[in-house]
């Protein structure tokens, strides 16, 4: 995917490519009430992500990055606004309906890897295949583990793997269903810089090979710079950023 396939516009921060839209958020609001006080985390936020695009969302700790990711992936419901994923309005789907929409089409990479400690590397990768309605083959899972360089460690439990290795298993797991969209939440947050860089290389190369859409939440500018498009989340709103304007730290 080349940089030229996307551009940065002010609002609603839409992609300018001709590719169809994978995810579209319109006037998303999210507020939480605690007692009598109401706190608005996301404010009238809009976003349009085209198929094959890679988008980085940057923000400080506590800016609401994870909340936004949860909303975009249909893990949570907005207080207001509309979200369309794969052409389906999420507000019209119940929890199970949203889950069914994700099954096999959305992959996740988490900061804390989220590998099930009692499952081997192979079984962790198999997990989404077993949930999805598509036929899951352990052959496929094995191939994906080999692609992330862990073909020899399929039977190892997460605790027998290093942090970088665990995140590579998580990446294999994210891509094993051949998803259309991958969400990554601070994928390097728990890794040292060198390992982080390796993991990021892997993530981007797999993403490019598979032509997957990638939405990445991070506070790491170097990481954000590798995406087609960068957005900054501040005070509940998204603002566009050009790669050149990014410093080393947000």
């Amino acid at each position: 995917m080349s940089d030229s396939s996307s551009s940065y516009v002010s609002a609603p921060y839409a992609h300018a490519s001709s590719a169809p839209s994978v995810l579209k958020a319109q006037s998303l609001c999210k507020s939480v009430t605690s007692g009598e006080r109401s706190l608005t985390i996301l404010h009238e936020l809009s976003l349009d992500v085209a198929a094959g695009e890679s988008v980085a969302i940057l923000g400080k700790s506590g800016s609401g990055k994870s909340t936004l990711l949860g909303l975009l992936a249909g893990l949570d419901t907005p207080t207001d606004g509309e979200l369309t994923l794969f052409g389906k309005q999420l507000s019209r789907l119940d929890e199970d309906g949203r889950a069914a929409l994700r099954a096999g089409r959305v992959g996740f990479v988490f900061q804390n890897f989220q590998l099930l400690p009692s499952l081997s590397a192979l079984e962790n990768v198999l997990l989404p295949l077993e949930i999805s309605p598509r036929v899951g083959e352990s052959q496929t899972a094995q191939e994906w583990l080999a692609r992330v360089g862990l073909g020899e460690r399929t039977s190892h439990l997460p605790k027998q793997l290093s942090g970088g290795e665990q995140q590579r298993v998580a990446i294999a797991r994210a891509f094993v269903t051949d998803p259309e969209l991958v969400f990554a939440d601070e994928p390097t947050g728990n890794l040292d810089p060198d390992t982080g860089a390796q993991v990021i290389d892997l993530l981007f190369s797999l993403n490019q090979e598979a032509g997957t859409t990638l939405i990445l939440v991070t506070h790491d500018h170097a990481l954000a710079r590798r995406c087609n498009r960068c957005l900054r989340l501040e005070n509940g709103r998204l603002t566009p950023f050009t790669p050149e304007s990014l410093g080393e730290d947000a």
Partner: peptide, 16 residues
């Protein structure tokens, strides 16, 4: 609970 949440994330229904 973590397992369940993860499965939910990957698209498992409540019934599943």
């Amino acid at each position: 609970l973590d397992t369940a949440a993860l499965l939910r994330c990957f698209g498992a229904s409540q019934q599943q």
